[in-house]
Design a protein around this nucleic acid. Structure first.
Length: 270
DNA sequence: CGCCAGGTTGTCG
DNA sequence: CGACAACATGGC
């Protein structure tokens, strides 16, 4: 158990249930239980403190501090974003505790391949079955996200039980290219943004949007601004005069504020 | 039943 | 080049 005192600009629900990650489950007490980097933890806020159950100082320093992006000054970033547009200011004020997670790159890539033409509850279900079927069991009812190597060895029919539909062969193609070294996610992390996109789009089933989600959520490229159906609506209705690049080096964080704000206010788009 | 969901692909004109 | 159906699956 670890307590992080006096934490600012972080809210577990806003961060873990805003559509950037698909494996965190809200518990009856309002905490969130999840798995990353092979470890299971439960995260909750108590007043201005952040409590992480199932970890210790060493794992916190090695994993969770980075995973939750606690080293980044979101107060400062939010202030700079708020100056860009009044509606962005409103969206940021609506969920000021959102942070962009540092997810495992392959998990982010695979999860967003699954996300295409799909809805969030069903994405969560497919990811859950994927982990339960092919991940490593950590404890009762807890499984890791299966490695690219594990998935690369499967035939499409073996993925049928997770009910990913037409995405099954995309998942396997991605796994083969990552496991085989044809695509080096850590090298992509440091590439110029368009080269990075081009590399990821060598995978069948990865277009610009899945590439940008992988870059933002898996490789922490905060300037990536993924445009899904919600963001396209939001841009057309709320920011008609703006383009993604106008949101600057922290556009990805702006995108997450806007995405969450839009999903919580569907009446804006009827 | 038809439409939609954090899209992408292949195929037309 | 741009438009558009098809792609599995499940909820409404």
């Amino acid at each position: 158990m670890m307590t992080v005192k006096d934490i600012k600009d972080f809210n577990a629900a806003q961060t873990l249930d805003c559509g950037q990650a698909f494996r965190w489950k809200e518990q009856t007490d309002g905490s969130f239980k999840g798995i990353a980097y092979g470890k299971v933890v439960t995260i909750k806020a108590e007043g201005s403190d952040l409590i992480i159950d199932g970890t210790d100082e060493s794992d916190f320093e090695a994993i969770w501090k980075k995973y939750l992006d606690l080293e980044c000054d979101y107060g400062q970033i939010r202030k700079s974003l708020e100056a860009i547009h009044p509606i962005l200011k409103e969206a940021a004020a609506f969920a000021p505790g959102i942070r962009i997670l540092n997810q495992e790159p392959w998990e982010a890539l695979c999860s967003f391949i699954i996300s295409q033409n799909n809805n969030i509850p069903r994405i969560k279900g497919i990811v859950e079955r994927l982990c339960r079927s092919f991940g490593e069991q950590i404890d009762e009812d807890c499984f890791t996200f299966p490695s690219a190597e594990r998935i690369a060895a499967l035939e499409p029919e073996e993925l049928a039980p997770i009910r990913a539909g037409f995405r099954a062969r995309y998942i396997i193609d991605g796994a083969k290219k990552v496991a085989g070294g044809e695509i080096d996610l850590e090298a992509i992390r440091r590439m110029e943004i368009n080269d990075a996109r081009y590399e990821l789009m060598k995978i069948t089933g990865v277009g610009i949007k899945v590439a940008d989600c992988t870059l933002l959520y898996g490789l922490h490229r905060l300037d990536c601004f993924p445009l899904d159906v919600w963001m396209k609506r939001a841009m057309a209705v709320l920011f008609p005069e703006m383009k993604p690049e106008d949101f600057g080096e922290y556009g990805g964080i702006a995108q997450q504020y806007i995405f969450h704000y839009s999903r919580m206010h569907p009446e804006l788009f009827v």
